[in-house]
Computed example of a mutant assay.
Amino acid sequence: MSFIWRRRFSDIFDEIEEMIREMERLAEAMLGGFETRMPRGEFKGPIVYGVRITIGPDGRPIIEEFGNVKRRGRRAIIEEAVEPLVEVIDEKDKVVVIAEIPGVEKDKIDIRIKDGKLIIRAEDRERKYYKEIELPPNIKPETAKAKYKNGVLEVTIEKEKPEEEKEEGGIRVKVE
């Protein structure tokens, strides 16, 4: 019985290794010979490309790209602003957004909530960051608070409290 469990457990690692090989092939196809195709002096700043792999609620892997290298078909386009690595934690009473934006002063960070999206802009002499994050519909934008420390931005936004009418089928009447 334990042999079967070990076999299945090792299959997960085989799948992860295959995903990593596929990502390496994809990155090589996108960026291979990139230096020779780019005109000298046209772009100033770092070239950032990264991938984060998480397991979704259905057990399938979710691959998220970040950085300033974007895919347009088979070509790679470099944008001036880097898209930071972001994690959205949707809790019962609040939403917490954590973004990695190292190298900028906190007074250079602009955070806005507009049309159901959290928009993060940060710009310093050498770095630019930009990211739009889709937020759940039941947030209270006026409660948003942000902290920035050691290159990590944390934005907390409260959610609307569920109405009493939704609780247990109606409005509760107090007994005197």
Rank of each mutant, 00 (worst) to 15 (best):
N68D: 05
I47S: 07
V69S: 10
E79P: 05
I16L: 15
E134W: 02
M30V: 00
I139C: 00
I101A: 07
K128E: 13
E100P: 00
A144N: 04
A144C: 01
E80V: 06
T36H: 13
F66G: 04
P39N: 09
R72W: 06
G56D: 13
E28F: 09
R71P: 10
F34W: 14
T36C: 05
R40C: 01
L118I: 00
A146K: 10
Y130S: 05
P39Q: 11
G67H: 00
I63D: 02
A76W: 09
L118V: 00
K149N: 13
G56Q: 10
V88M: 05
I53A: 11
K106F: 08
L26T: 12
E22Y: 04
N68T: 02
G33F: 08
K94Y: 09
G59T: 06
K94T: 04
I119C: 01
G67M: 09
P46S: 15
V48T: 11
G33Y: 09
R121E: 12
I133A: 08
D115L: 04
K70F: 14
L118Y: 02
G116S: 01
R60A: 14
E134R: 10
L85K: 11
E28D: 13
P84F: 05
T36D: 15
A27N: 15
P141A: 01
I55D: 06
K145A: 09
P61C: 03
E126P: 00
E15Q: 11
I139W: 03
F43D: 09
I89D: 04
I62N: 11
E42W: 13
I111L: 09
E126V: 04
P39E: 04
T143I: 07
N138S: 04
E65Y: 13
P137S: 04
E17I: 06
A81K: 15
I139V: 05
V48K: 14
I20E: 08
I89C: 03
R121Q: 11
V88D: 01
R71G: 14
I62L: 14
A144M: 15
E132L: 12
G103P: 02
G41T: 07
G151F: 06
I78H: 10
G67E: 08
E79Q: 15
D124K: 10
D124I: 04
V97A: 05
K108E: 12
V104R: 07
Y148V: 00
K145I: 05
R127F: 08
V97T: 02
V96A: 09
A146F: 06
K117S: 03
R112K: 11
G59C: 09
F34K: 08
G50P: 02
D124Y: 06
I111Y: 01
A122L: 09
E134L: 14
P141R: 03
N150M: 13
P39G: 07
M23K: 13
P137Q: 01
E18F: 08
Y129P: 00
R125V: 09
R21H: 08
G45I: 12
R72Y: 10
K70D: 11
